[in-house]
Structure formats: structure tokens, C-alpha cells
Design a protein around this nucleic acid. Structure first.
Lengths: 207, 207
DNA sequence: TGTACATCAGTGAACGCGCGTTCACTGATGTAC
DNA sequence: TGTACATCAGTGAACGCGCGTTCACTGATGTAC
């Protein structure tokens, strides 16, 4: 009924990842020391190395968890939107609205995107982590491209647009909006950009 | 006639900043060691401390130089565009096209935006650097907002948009486009996003 | 023009601290028979 | 049910290396008189 209770249960590893994630988004990976993580979680340094063979293994786990969560969140959101309207265009517009509201509701603004953070610390990571990051971005492109394809099948676009670029635009605007919002310390920037994208979609596909 | 030849001329400081800039964009500030910078420039560590009182002073100088250059580049670009067409809408569209082409012509893609890199390493810097970063983003907003205001005065917008958000959209798309382009290793992503923004402007302001 | 001094653009050696990593060990829980 | 062993989730001490920073010094050029 509950989670499999087989061996001893601890959530130390998850707590390490939680603390690491926000530290990495604030200071970068190199500046995030194992020392500070274990201090906050309350274990010793050797405890850390029980959970991860080395620091870069944690970087990998961190990104993997982030991408999985983000994917689940988007699945959930756009599936719910689809249930609210059977026309893919209106479902997409509803999904974007819900997404903007979700972002607006974050009490301290969006904490940051790990893909963006890792991108600007590329050289610290191995091929595997970079491949994971790339796969994450391509999955976003594929996701929104699929939604746009469904729309195009029913609604002829008013202008000629590259649908991959238009799919990427969601990610670009979100990553960019997060950065601007953080820098000017205004949590309305990100939702505002999402809503502008929504306007763009509406003007490309006149209902 | 030439630069004032008063005291001894060296460009060591500028070379340090050049090397530092690309290192910071690839690995982050903390992971960029003074040691590697001086190795590439060919001076000793004490030589570094002749030019900068400490490492964070270099961070400040780096960002300041970046913002100044970026501003000069945008001034030049949109002034040239304005000379090509007296209608502010068309001048803006021309400027965006030129901007996209400039980005497309970078041989290895855009090297990255220091504002974005610093944003994800916020906590490493002092209040002064963060204020500089913020001022930079707000200057971009003001720049594009001014261009949009001129357009609105002549061309009624087809839909109701927040002009500040629409101004921010340029920066968001550029920062986002840089990240996506770097992560998927495709230098066409950034120019593609700029061209999509151009389409958006065209659809908001039907000539 | 010569000389004294100031400034520029560094050098060289030493520093201490914090970081990631290793290794031998441990006490509590789970599993097999 | 009792006992032996395995696994889980760590502890504690030690390590060496690289990092940012300091300090006393220097040789070449510029400037004042």
C-alpha cells in the first residue's frame, strides 16, 4: 500500500539533492561545497560519499531528477488542459494560461532552470551530463512541436512559421523570463512572457 | 591623434578580461581560476593583483565592459536601421533582421550572455555587481520600449499588449535562444528566435 | 642635456584555508535457515 | 524462535592539492627642474 518498505528508509539522499539544487541555482555548481550541503542536511562528509561516488555523480542525479519532474509537471498541465477543450488550439491556449498562472503563484518567483545553470557551467561536466541536458531541451521541443502539429492540422496558420522554432520559443521565453525576473527581482516577468507567447500563438492561428 | 600615449601602454588588463570572459561563460566564475588566466596571458599571479585588487573586482570590470559593449553594439545597429527607413516600425523590423543576421554570422554561435551567467551565480557577487546586472537588463527594457513607443504612436496595435513585456521579450528570447543554441549545439536557434520575434511585431502592428 | 625621483607593470616566494576524496570502521535493521 | 550473516546508512580522522591573497622587491619608462 505504502512505498515498498523493504530496506531501511531514509530520505537523506533526496534532502541532499533538494539543498544542492537551490544552492546550485544560486551560486553555481563549483561554488556549492559538499561541506555546506551536509551541514544543512545534518550528516558527515563521509555520509555524502555513501550516497554519491563523487561530486559529479550528484550533478548527474540532480539534472536527471529535475528533467523528470519538469516533464511530469508539463504532462500533467497540458493533459488537464486537453480535457477542458477538445480543440487542440484552445487546449494549448488554456494550457499556456494555466502555466502562466502556475509561474505567477510561485511565492518567491521561479527558483531557476537547471538546464540554463548547467549550460553556463558546461565545461565542469562530462559528456554524459551534457547529453542529458541536450536531451532535455530536445524533449521540450518535441513536446511543443507535437502540440503545434495537432493545431496546424486543424487551423491553417496565418503566416509561415518554422514550427520547431515556435516550439523552442516556449523554452526560450521561459528560460529568458526566469533570468530577467531574477535579475530585476520581479516575479511577474516570467508569467508575462508566457502570456505574450500565448498572444503570438493566437495571432498565428486565428481561431 | 592616436590614443593618449601618456604612461606606459600595456593591454594586459584587457587580455585578462578577454580570457576571463570566455572562461566564465564556459565554467562559471568560481571555477575560473586566476591561475589559468595568467597562464594564458603570460604573466605571474602577482601581475594579476596589480591589475585587480581581488577576484571580485575583476567580476565587476568584466560585467561593466560587457554591458558597455553590448549597448554600443545595439546603438550602432538600430541607428543604422533607422537611417534605412524613416518609419519606426519598418526601421525596427530592419534592425531585428540585421540583428538576427549578426547572430547567425558568429562562427561558433553566440559565446553566451554574462548577465545570464551572473544571474545563475548571484550569491557569489556583492550588491554592486547585482545592481549593475539589474541596471543592464532595465536599460535593455528601456531601449526597446522607446522603439516600441515610437511605433505605437504611428501604428495602432492590432491587439492589446503590455509594451514593457514586449520590450523584455527581446532580451528573454535572446538569453533563452543563446541557452538553447548552446545546449543543442545549433547556432541557428538564436537567429530563429529573433526572426520569430520579428514576426510577432509584424502581427501586432499590421503595417 | 643631465640627473633625481615617481610611476608603471610587473616578479618571486610564502601563507593558510577549504575543498574533494579515501579508508577503516560501526551500530541498527533485514533475511535465511 | 534463535542465531549468523548481510546490508544499510552512515561516522571519524586524515590526505594532499590548488586556490586567493599578501608582501617586499625590481627594472623600464616618464616627468620636473
Amino acid at each position: 500500500m505504502l512505498d515498498k518498505p523493504s530496506p531501511k528508509r531514509t530520505n537523506t539522499r533526496e534532502r541532499l539533492l533538494d539543498v544542492a539544487e537551490s544552492a546550485v541555482l544560486e551560486k553555481g555548481f563549483e561554488a556549492t561545497s559538499i561541506e555546506e550541503l551536509i551541514a544543512e542536511v545534518g550528516i558527515t562528509k563521509s555520509g555524502f560519499f555513501y550516497h554519491f561516488p563523487d561530486k559529479t555523480a550528484m550533478a548527474h542525479a540532480l539534472l536527471e531528477r529535475y528533467l523528470t519532474r519538469e516533464d511530469a509537471m508539463l504532462d500533467d498541465l497540458f493533459n488537464r488542459a486537453r480535457e477542458l477543450h477538445e480543440d487542440p488550439l484552445h487546449a494549448f491556449l488554456i494550457g499556456l494560461k494555466m502555466f502562466a498562472e502556475l509561474m505567477a503563484d510561485l511565492p518567491n518567483g521561479h527558483p531557476g532552470c537547471l538546464v540554463a545553470a548547467y549550460c553556463y557551467q558546461d565545461r565542469l561536466f562530462d559528456r554524459e551530463v551534457r547529453a542529458l541536458n541536450r536531451a532535455g531541451v530536445l524533449a521540450w521541443r518535441a513536446r511543443f512541436r507535437a502540440l503545434l502539429d495537432e493545431i496546424v492540422a486543424l487551423h491553417p496558420p496565418r503566416i509561415d512559421v518554422d514550427l520547431d522554432a515556435m516550439a523552442d520559443m516556449v523554452s526560450a521565453l521561459v528560460d529568458g523570463g526566469i533570468i530577467l525576473g531574477k535579475v530585476v527581482d520581479d516575479k511577474n516577468v516570467l508569467p508575462g512572457q508566457v502570456m505574450l507567447y500565448r498572444e503570438f500563438v493566437r495571432s498565428v492561428f486565428p481561431g
